[in-house]
């Protein structure tokens, strides 16, 4: 029997295991045995990837950068969801508030997600830095550290930041465009009460990561099965809806610039003690 390919994933909610059960079964049925290994945070998952305990890691964008950094560039991005490409974060303000431009944020408080959330903290703050506003000097950061280590996978930090803005305890907050759209649709973010002040540059999100030395033939076979999933097939659709995609795409590394810039400006690795 072929040795199963070991794929790591960080679980922020036990319900996510259902997605991986479906994926694992799909690979088994297609003759490409796969084992799922779950981790409580991305540091542990990257330890396992770089230590050779798993073959593929489903990495957040920050975990991707960390894997590349720790391996000296010895990792490859092999696949991602269609919805991982070209994301953006919005900086949102109260419609009746005093903030009408980015410059108006000077001297004010901005609510963000967890300290390691690319979309709700690092990239939005990096965006403001590129517009000349430094956290601590020009504006106060009010952080909502929900499930630190999971890189903002859990929406709680963004939700808390929005609630903080709504209570008037902050003058702006940051959120991923997908959450923005969902909250616009369900009434959480009514347009008459909240406006978009600014939108960050586009960036890419999660990505399947392998070490450079991962066997190319095994990788090719695994990708063949992954890319054969079809949203038109009802058996695949449940998982794809849960995971928020319509199609798997090839991995690319061109969409991590805004995050890379942000972690450099904010000296994230140094601040995190790494």
């Amino acid at each position: 029997m072929t040795e199963p390919i070991r794929v790591g994933a960080v679980l922020y909610d036990p319900k996510v295991s259902v997605i991986w059960d479906i994926i694992r079964e799909f690979f088994e049925w297609n003759g490409c045995p796969m084992d799922c290994v779950f981790y409580t945070n991305y540091d542990l998952q990257n330890d396992a990837l770089l230590g050779g305990h798993i073959d593929i890691a489903w990495n957040s964008p920050l975990a991707w950068l960390d894997a590349v950094r720790r391996s000296g560039g010895g990792c490859r991005a092999i696949a991602m969801r269609d919805t991982d490409r070209d994301r953006a974060s919005h900086i949102v303000v109260r419609a009746d508030g005093p903030v009408k431009s980015i410059a108006d944020l000077k001297g004010r408080t901005i609510a963000v997600g967890a300290e390691d959330s690319p979309q709700a903290t690092l990239i939005p703050i990096g965006f403001l830095q590129r517009h000349g506003l430094e956290p601590g000097r020009d504006f106060t950061v009010r952080r909502f550290d929900v499930l630190v280590g999971k890189h903002g996978d859990h929406v709680g930090g963004e939700r808390d930041a929005l609630a903080c803005l709504d209570r008037g305890e902050a003058d702006a907050c940051a959120m991923l465009d997908l959450n923005y759209e969902a909250w616009r649709a369900d009434g959480t973010l009514p347009p008459e009460r909240f406006h978009t002040l600014a939108t960050t540059d586009r960036f890419d999100h999660c990505v399947f990561t392998v070490r450079d030395d991962f066997d190319r033939e095994r990788e090719k076979e695994w990708l063949r099965v992954l890319f054969s999933m079809s949203y038109d097939d009802p058996a695949h659709r449940k998982m794809m809806d849960m995971e928020g995609l319509k199609a798997w795409k090839e991995g690319r590394v061109t969409g991590f610039g805004p995050l890379s810039d942000a972690v450099t400006r904010q000296e994230f690795w140094k601040a995190a003690g790494r």
Binding site: L11, P14, S17, V37, F38, Y39, T40, N41, L44, Q45, A48
Partner: peptide, 11 residues
């Protein structure tokens, strides 16, 4: 901790 049931490393 339901994550323990799922053998999540680190939980």
């Amino acid at each position: 901790n339901p994550l323990t049931y799922l053998a999540v490393v680190g939980e």
